[in-house]
């Protein structure tokens, strides 16, 4: 069993318009020392998944089913107090916007002290601050003992995200979840933060889960990739395999719709047609079929049968698509690869 094991996870929200199936039968595993990149667009369920792992869904309208095991310990249905004890100690999280994610009224140092002290109740103020300064130094904040007394708004965007990382790592967690950690940052600062996360992961050996919409960010960091669509896993596997031999038409669409810096400029982008689905009325059958150019290649199957994840023939690489292996290989070779 993996260090983090998610098995048939369902997260639904009841709203006035109906039940939102944000995560719908998601399974994956993550080992310590590995990085998993979860990619998807808004509404794919990637952030909902990370919040479910952290036990941060608090609304009475949310319903979580399935299993989430952290180091063998069941989190779904566990007492809130038990999950709280794990949060910040064994699993920690950094968020998209470091400005709004830090409390505006407390100094950066105090907020990190607090994260340390809550799981080290015997630690005095001095010990906590020593640890805080050490962490701030580790994440590359100059003059950390002085900057610890600054307020978040006195930090630059990149510095704030570094402080958030210091706060997340202050208790040496085994699992770090980063939800769009660089989306709010400038490109040159994003490169620094990605570099930092990679270094720290090697140093601390924790399991890292990166949630992002940016395939480039995933490629930079992840050992394994999980592509989500409409709350389900569309495709998952080792990064090398997924990027070099993507199997799902949605992944193809994502890869060919973005203009790329590492390729010659194409005359025309090939967008995915249509709109992302409503999670209240998810299309029958394969949720991607209304936007899939190949949905009709296998009769009506895509229209009425939900595809299950199945082997692609490459180790650990699974895809949820009805296309026959030979058809997929041909389409990829003839139509998709030339576009990538």
């Amino acid at each position: 069993m993996s260090f983090l094991e998610v098995d048939d996870l369902h997260v639904t929200f009841s709203t006035e318009d109906g039940v939102v199936r944000a995560v719908d039968g998601l399974s994956f595993g993550l080992e310590q020392g590995r990085t998993l990149g979860i990619v998807g667009e808004s509404g794919s369920g990637k952030s909902v998944t990370s919040l479910a792992v952290m036990g941060l869904h608090r609304s009475a309208r949310v319903n979580i089913n399935g299993r989430i095991l952290l180091d063998g310990q069941e989190l779904v249905g566990a007492s809130p107090e038990a999950v709280r004890r794990l949060r910040g100690r064994r699993m920690a999280m950094i968020f998209q916007d470091p400005l709004t994610s830090l409390h505006p009224f407390y100094t950066v140092g105090r907020q990190i002290d607090e994260a340390y002290k809550v799981h080290h109740p015997k630690a005095g103020r001095h010990e906590a601050r020593t640890r805080t300064v050490e962490m701030l130094r580790r994440v590359g904040i100059p003059q950390p003992d002085r900057r610890a007394n600054d307020y978040p708004h006195q930090f630059s965007g990149g510095m704030r995200q570094r402080a958030m990382i210091a706060m997340a790592l202050v208790n040496d967690p085994d699992l770090l979840i980063a939800d769009e950690p660089t989306t709010a940052l400038d490109v040159t600062v994003q490169a620094q933060i990605l570099d930092l996360i990679r270094d720290l992961q090697q140093e601390f050996g924790s399991a890292v889960m990166i949630i992002t919409h940016d395939l480039g960010v995933v490629a930079e960091l992840a050992d394994d990739v999980l592509v989500m669509y409409a709350g389900k896993s569309a495709e998952t596997g080792p990064a090398e395999s997924v990027f070099n031999r993507p199997q799902h038409p949605y992944t193809w669409g994502l890869l060919s719709s973005v203009p790329r810096m590492d390729r010659e400029r194409q005359e025309r982008l090939v967008p995915i047609t249509g709109q992302p689905p409503s999670l209240i009325r998810v299309p029958e059958g394969c949720p991607f079929h209304p936007r899939c150019p190949y949905a009709k290649l296998n009769g009506t199957r895509s229209f009425d049968e939900v595809p299950k994840l199945r082997e692609t023939g490459e180790p650990g690489h699974l895809v949820a698509c009805h296309l026959e292996a030979e058809v997929r290989a041909r389409v990829f070779r003839e139509e998709v690869r030339p576009r990538l």
Partner: peptide, 9 residues
């Protein structure tokens, strides 16, 4: 959300 993620009471 950050405060909760830290494991605060």
């Amino acid at each position: 959300r950050t405060a909760r993620a830290k494991g605060l009471n």
